[in-house]
Design a protein around this nucleic acid. Structure first.
Lengths: 110, 110
DNA sequence: CTGAATCCAGTCGGATACTG
DNA sequence: CAGTATCCGACTGGATTCAG
């Protein structure tokens, strides 16, 4: 949540971690993969995230180039978040995590 | 680092996050993928992690069934960490992260 | 509806010193 | 060498309030 940009480490795995390892970012990605969502929709679909933190992590991801933020000057205001190509390119990671999680739970249930 | 076991959420992506989202766990996985390592080797290869936290996260991963801990009763003591099949099954996620990180850095350099 | 600002508790994790 | 215990600063993130 720091204001300063994070430095990119030498290891590719660390590079990825730097951009998506915050508490809610992976879930934001998961929920935006199907398409554009409004702020309120995201907040509801993610679950227990607070407004402050959701805003902060969305802004960080915008700065990282993972998503775009579009403000519609209406009353009441409407703000939509959409993954960029870069953000969408994280899909293989999300898919791998989903696949693994499913297999893990299936195993735990025997 | 909590002592209590973490609950598994409904979403598979969250399940995965629950098990590997701590600060150093992905790097531990990365470094154990090639094979068994001693505590000191891990500490060196991971980088700036402190001894206390590395120990704690390794123990959590052991409890989660991601790795095994083998103590050799020698002087000086030797402790080796090895991924279980379950831990090794996370490889596709690690690979996806590495691939993405490489592509990202390549793009940043034009 | 979205978001900024403030306050604050909980935790994470680093540094250090000590043990077998 | 590997691990434990203690201390403590820093940061994360939730709750609340106010604003446009």
């Amino acid at each position: 949540m720091a204001a300063a940009a994070k430095e990119l480490p030498a290891c590719p795995v660390e590079t990825t971690l730097t951009l998506i390892s915050d508490k809610w970012k992976v879930l934001i990605l998961r929920d935006l993969m199907p398409g554009t969502k409004r702020f309120g929709e995201l907040k509801k679909s993610i679950g227990s995230v607070s407004q402050k933190v959701l805003t902060a992590q969305l802004r960080e991801m915008e700065r990282s180039g993972l998503l775009t933020r579009t403000v519609y000057p209406e009353v009441p205001p409407r703000v939509e978040y959409t993954l960029t190509d870069l953000g969408y390119s994280l899909k293989p990671i999300l898919d791998a995590m989903r696949n693994w999680g499913e297999a893990y739970k299936a195993q735990k249930q025997g």
